[in-house]
Design a protein around this nucleic acid. Structure first.
Length: 554
RNA sequence: GCGCCCGUAGCUCAGCUGGAUAGAGUGUCAGACUCCGAAUCUGAAGGUCGCGCGUUCGAAUCGCGCCGGGCGCACCA
């Protein structure tokens, strides 16, 4: 929509130049925006102010030269005005918008798709919680953001691959296995001194009971060294299965689960390190192997292989990212919890040493979630095992509300998640506000059908009957959707869509309260039904991105 | 001490990457269903955009310095 306006202005600029009114020895970007105050017009541009410097003329003089070269006699342009220091304000004919509506009808939920991504392949890695315990609410936020970003990027023309990185290597796995082993022994009445640095959560008992079901007491008398591998693998698998189940219940799907352990099959990790050594990025010191991340803005170099010969987590990450690059992705996006922000610099260093363009490497940090209940913050601590799991929240407040609450805020802002509010089926709850609009439209159609109305072919609808201020505003808002999609995909900011939907639906509710859709006037009714049908399509599309359902009845 | 994020209405947050008189929701107050769903709508009140300099035609937005809150600063994962 704005593109059309931009072209109109560009044409006027050319004419002004041809007529010798402007020099135009440079071509600045034409900024088109919608003025806050609608009285000022439908669109406005600051081009005259931007040109003031190079043209060495008063912005108002420039504005007049441009405005003078815009036709209002035919086409969609209704009026041009100059205001303030040199804003050029444009008013459009209703037809301009109404014709845009046909596009919605034609493309359905595909309306708003764009070619920003040009089919580039994107790897989206998110959640990636260690398989040492169930997902908590913080992971849930990352899951919702990642899932929606995937949907958004797909809509914006990218080919998206969503991946979960499973950290199934390292000491933590041994600790996990041992935790289960100890709890297992406890089940048989053994008095165990459970170490403080082992996993304290109640879920470990569940794992132990599951071992009991499978193996009975057959492992009880065996030596720890002998059974530990079994406990380790059993626990990891059990917990990962739980994670998968909870994510699925939360409507988050992954295309791939990447095992850290798989990186170490063969000698590929050593080869990568050797490769970096040849390039001079890796050196040895104090018996350890280091990567010179300080060459790329990190505050200190990082250990890749420990003195002990063990490889660090960081080492795996190097190999993992090398793997991502090798798989041919054009764009790599990681979504991490904000507590990992200290790793951003070093991962950028890694990606750069591996020869990947940093322009196409993004790390999104999702800030913490503070859970609230009855106005009180719920204390959480992973170490002590006292935390609220994602699954508990989802069971209590439902998938729709949980997802929406995670997606309604900018992800780099801390989130207060008020469970009591999320559960309320009242106007205070923004999820229902949007879903209600959808249900309401469906209800309108039920009424309309009872009265014998059915939407005919688009060509038979008299769009010109749509002329109330509220409905034209609504049409305008509908047509802003593609831009919202594009902008939020560019910025990797998922919350913009949520805000847009709330605004969109708000306009509908106002309109609905002021004007009747189904009336005695058949032509008018059909035109309005058509408008509202387009809106319904859009709500479905938007809620679809959020992964929130669009119910026909509530 | 260093680094990242945040600071906007009583509360929770937007603010389209520098534009016109800073916006929503919620809460408070006052109103609207014999009529397509009142889970809705209309109106009022509510602001030194944390503070101070600077950049320019123009700053909530950009830069620097403070103040306050959160989170990180491992040869853990």
């Amino acid at each position: 929509m704005k593109e059309t306006i931009r072209n109109l202005i560009a044409e006027a600029l050319d004419k002004a130049r041809d007529a010798g009114q402007l020099d135009l020895n440079c071509s600045p970007e034409i900024v088109v925006e919608e003025p806050r105050d609608k009285k000022m017009g439908d669109f406005s541009t600051t081009i005259a102010m931007a040109l003031a410097k190079t043209e060495k003329k008063n912005p108002r003089v420039i504005a007049e030269a441009i405005a003078g070269n815009m036709k209002t006699t035919d086409g969609d342009l209704a009026g041009v005005e100059i205001a303030g220091p040199g804003f050029i304000n444009l008013k459009m004919e209703p037809s301009f918008y109404l014709n845009g509506l046909l596009e919605v009808a034609k493309r359905g939920t595909g309306f708003g798709n764009c070619d920003l991504g040009k089919n580039q392949k994107v790897l989206l890695e998110f959640v990636s919680a260690n398989p040492t315990g169930p997902l908590h609410v913080g992971h849930g936020r990352g899951a919702a953001v990642g899932d929606m970003l995937g949907a958004l990027l797909k809509k914006a023309g990218y080919e998206v691959f969503k991946e979960y990185y499973v950290n199934d290597v390292g000491n933590q796995m041994n600790t996990l296995g041992r935790s289960t082993w100890l709890r297992y022994q406890e089940l048989y009445g053994k008095n165990i001194d459970f170490p403080g640095d082992h996993y304290q959560g109640e879920y470990i008992n569940d794992v132990a009971r599951s071992v009991q079901e499978e193996k009975g007491d057959s492992l009880l008398e065996k030596a720890e060294d002998e059974v530990l591998p079994y406990f380790r693998e059993f626990s990891a698998r059990y917990i990962l299965d739980g994670i998968k189940e909870h994510l699925q219940a939360f409507r988050v799907e992954f295309n791939g689960w990447f095992s850290e352990e798989s990186l170490y099959e063969g000698d590929s990790v050593d080869r990568i390190i050797d490769g970096l050594k040849d390039k001079g990025y890796v050196y040895e010191k104090d018996g350890a192997v280091w990567l010179k991340t300080t060459d790329f803005n990190d505050e200190k170099d990082r250990v890749v292989v420990k003195q002990s010969g063990d490889r660090t987590y960081f080492c795996s990450d190097i190999a993992y990212h090398q793997n991502k690059i090798k798989r041919g992705f054009d764009k790599i996006i990681n979504i991490w919890g904000a507590d990992h922000h200290g790793y951003v610099a070093r991962m950028q260093a890694v990606v750069k040493t591996l020869g990947f363009d940093l322009e196409n490497f993004h790390t999104l940090l999702v800030q913490f979630v503070a859970l609230k209940r009855g106005g009180e913050k719920v204390a959480m601590s992973t170490r002590s095992g006292e935390f609220i799991t994602l699954d508990e929240v989802v069971r209590e407040v439902g998938v729709d509300a949980t997802r929406f609450f995670f997606l309604m805020r900018s992800s780099d802002s801390h989130l207060d998640f008020d469970m009591d509010l999320a559960k309320k089926e009242t106007p205070e709850n923004p999820v229902f506000y949007i879903q209600y609009a959808h249900a309401r439209i469906c209800s309108i159609f039920r009424t309309a059908e009872e009265q014998g109305f059915a939407l005919p072919d688009v060509s038979k609808i008299k769009l010109s009957r749509i002329k109330e201020k509220e409905e034209l505003d609504l049409v305008k808002k509908i047509l802003a959707y593609p831009e919202v999609i594009q902008k939020s995909a560019e910025a990797l900011e998922v919350h913009r869509v949520s805000f847009y939907l709330q605004e969109l639906v708000g306009q509908f509710h106002s309109y609905y309260n002021k004007h009747r859709i189904v009336t005695d006037d058949k032509e008018l009714t059909l035109a309005r039904l058509f408008l509202v049908d387009c809106l319904r399509t859009l709500i479905r599309s938007g809620l679809g991105l959020l992964g929130v359902s669009a119910p026909e009845k509530m």
